[in-house]
């Protein structure tokens, strides 16, 4: 790490704590002693070259990826605690995927209510009421009865964000949420994300949208070859001659060349 993040006030609780996490696929090490902690309301952007382990690190947070070493704590609960109900815990960690992963056989509203009913045990009416709140919020209330295939990519991703929000997550994870979108749809998704950040949602975003990172993120994490090389306040990271590892510097230069 090249620079310590300037600590937010110590009384803000840590929501995500990743300590010394390492993971191997056979002999290939995907994550190398990763450590990260995210406080409530913080917005973190993770960037780095393809294959550097960003998605893998993100998925350790909701237990979608197992790891061999280290510890992950979510909202005070350790993932490797044998008493932990992983499905319960996952329901409180929202995740948004690169390819949306809406359920194509269900309507938009059914996409939002399915897990609320099955996992949280809410009634249909409760689940729909909450669904409407979040559809309104992502600006898609008129599309509630459509199927995902009838929506544009940007609209689908906004539905996916609403679906995750319906579960009342303590943190939202975004894995390259705009990289499969046509350029004209990127902004509508980033706007929704910026709105969430402004409302105080804790967020970890893997993204190469450096404009978003500069404007919305509190901290920027740079990964390469399974290691966290930089973890710095966004301002410091992006400043001219800012605190950056040489690799992050090279990565940024490549990204910003055009």
């Amino acid at each position: 790490m090249t620079a310590p993040a300037d600590e937010p006030p110590a009384d803000v609780p840590v929501v995500i704590d990743i300590q010394g996490v390492s993971k191997w696929y056979g002999a290939f090490q995907v994550l190398n002693d990763c450590a990260l902690s995210v406080r409530r309301g913080e917005v973190l952007v993770i960037c780095g070259p393809s294959g550097s382990g960003k998605s893998t690190l993100l998925k350790t947070v909701n237990g979608l990826e197992a790891f061999q070493q280290g510890a992950v704590t979510v909202d005070g609960v350790r993932l490797d605690d044998p008493k932990v109900d992983l499905t319960r815990l996952r329901s409180r960690v929202g995740m948004v995927f690169q390819h949306f992963e809406l359920f194509p056989h269900l309507t938009v509203m059914q996409n939002l209510t399915l897990a609320q009913v099955k996992v949280l045990g809410r009634s249909q009416a409760e689940a729909q009421a909450r669904g409407l709140i979040y559809l309104e919020r992502v600006g898609l209330i008129d599309h509630r009865d459509k199927r995902p295939a009838q929506l544009s990519g940007g609209q689908q991703q906004r539905v996916a964000i609403a679906r995750a929000l319906c579960m009342d997550p303590v943190v939202m994870l975004f894995d390259e949420p705009t990289s499969s979108l046509d350029p004209e749809m990127v902004a509508e998704v980033l706007d929704v994300m910026a709105g969430l950040a402004a409302d105080g949602m804790t967020m970890i975003c893997v993204t190469h949208e450096m404009g978003f990172a500069r404007r919305v993120a509190d901290r920027v994490v740079f990964m390469d070859e399974g290691r966290i090389l930089d973890d710095a306040p966004a301002k410091a990271f992006f400043a001219e001659g800012g605190v950056r590892s040489p690799r992050a510097d090279a990565f940024l230069n490549r990204l910003l060349r055009y």
Partner: peptide, 12 residues
């Protein structure tokens, strides 16, 4: 990815 989405929502 559909399975991953279901798991991420906490479904069994």
């Amino acid at each position: 990815g559909q399975t991953a989405a279901g798991r991420a929502l906490g479904m069994t």
